[in-house]
């Protein structure tokens, strides 16, 4: 087991190097002089020359790349052109907001999606199966910005159940420690604020959860149907096992592997920033952070944002791989 994890970690090294190299190229691949692009056409020649010097653009590319790697290792992600603050200081609150939202959404999506898929497979061709699968089809097809707006209209404006936008009540702001507000409010014992944060998360969380939920439900259903036809499930039934355990123990463990893949990919996508959802619900997340950086040509931020998102994606895949090996002994030993 440990050996397997070590092997997977070693395999990560080339992936991460490749990733950093691609991200490194982004700024260099800009047509013309990056310094001019960054500073704009009106920039003075001295300013451009100074920027070229700070960016190290006068060195050969491999020197630049190693310089870049060295900075990464010391946690230096460069400085935002817009705000003049180091990116590594600035990026965390955004990342935390996205992390909280994504986790909230993915927990809803997994819980409902997996169970709906299981029950649909168990009672194949029942009314539940049909309803769940039609809803899942609607779920994958629905444009998220439309759903978000409709939810705001109905649940905030009409019924006033949830706040329309933001992460917290601005009149009662959370005292941020880690910027993961649920965690922060709990350790500070401010449970009223925890509830408030959850109310703010509810609508964007559900809106964000619809597509992964639908995909997970469909995947779970088809995977379960496959497994439940297998010989070892017949064996389990021949032992006199209750159908509930046949489904939730003997079948689910086998069916969950393709579902895990989907969950991993979807989590990666959510953590990569749900720009639409974050924009509609006024959430300061990583998606919006990168988006705003793009609109103002803040290249160091774009570069670092992409790097962080890609890094998260790789890490989630690593976690999924490790989970596979925990579930399936055949992966562990091969």
């Amino acid at each position: 087991m440990l050996q397997y994890i070590m092997r997977r970690l070693l395999q990560l090294i080339p992936v991460l190097l490749g990733m950093t190299f691609v991200v490194f190229l982004i700024i260099r691949a800009i047509p013309g002089d990056p310094a001019v692009v960054i500073l704009g056409q009106q920039a003075t020649e001295e300013a451009v020359a100074a920027l070229r010097e700070t960016l190290g653009l006068n060195n050969p590319w491999y020197v630049q790349y190693f310089e870049y790697l060295k900075n990464l290792f010391t946690g230096d992600l460069g400085q935002s052109i817009r705000t003049r603050t180091p990116v590594n200081e600035e990026i965390w609150p955004y990342l935390a907001a996205t992390f909280e939202l994504s986790m909230f959404a993915i927990i809803i999506a997994v819980f409902i999606g997996v169970n709906a898929g299981i029950i649909s497979a168990w009672f194949q061709n029942s009314w539940f199966d049909y309803t769940a699968m039609i809803l899942a089809l609607v779920g994958v097809s629905i444009p998220i910005f439309w759903l978000g707006l409709m939810m705001q209209y109905q649940f905030s404006l009409q019924w006033d159940w949830f706040p329309t936008t933001g992460r917290e009540d601005v009149r009662n702001p959370v005292n941020a420690i880690t910027n993961l507000y649920i965690f922060d409010t709990i350790i500070q014992g401010r449970f009223d604020q925890t509830l408030d944060v959850l109310r703010h998360l509810a609508m964007p969380g559900i809106a964000l959860a619809t597509i992964p939920m639908a995909i997970i439900a469909r995947m779970t259903r088809s995977s379960m149907l496959e497994v439940m036809k297998s010989d070892y499930i017949r064996t389990a039934r021949a032992k006199g096992e209750k159908m509930f355990w046949v489904v939730y123990r003997h079948s689910l463990k086998n069916a969950v592997i393709p579902v895990l893949t989907v969950i991993g990919l979807q989590t990666g996508l959510l953590l990569g920033g749900a720009i639409l959802t974050e924009t509609i619900f006024g959430l300061p997340g990583i998606g919006r952070y990168i988006y705003e950086a793009i609109s103002s040509r803040d290249y160091p931020v774009i570069q670092s944002g992409i790097l962080v998102v890609a890094f998260i994606f790789v890490m989630i895949n690593l976690i999924v791989d490790i989970l596979y090996s925990i579930i399936d002994p055949r992966i562990r030993y091969s």
């Binding site: 010989d231 070892y232 017949r234 064996t235 389990a236």
Partner: peptide
Amino acid sequence: VAMIFQEPMTSLNPLF
């Protein structure tokens, strides 16, 4: 009543 099946390769659950 207990039963054994034709395919011992697939009749046992691979994950338990």
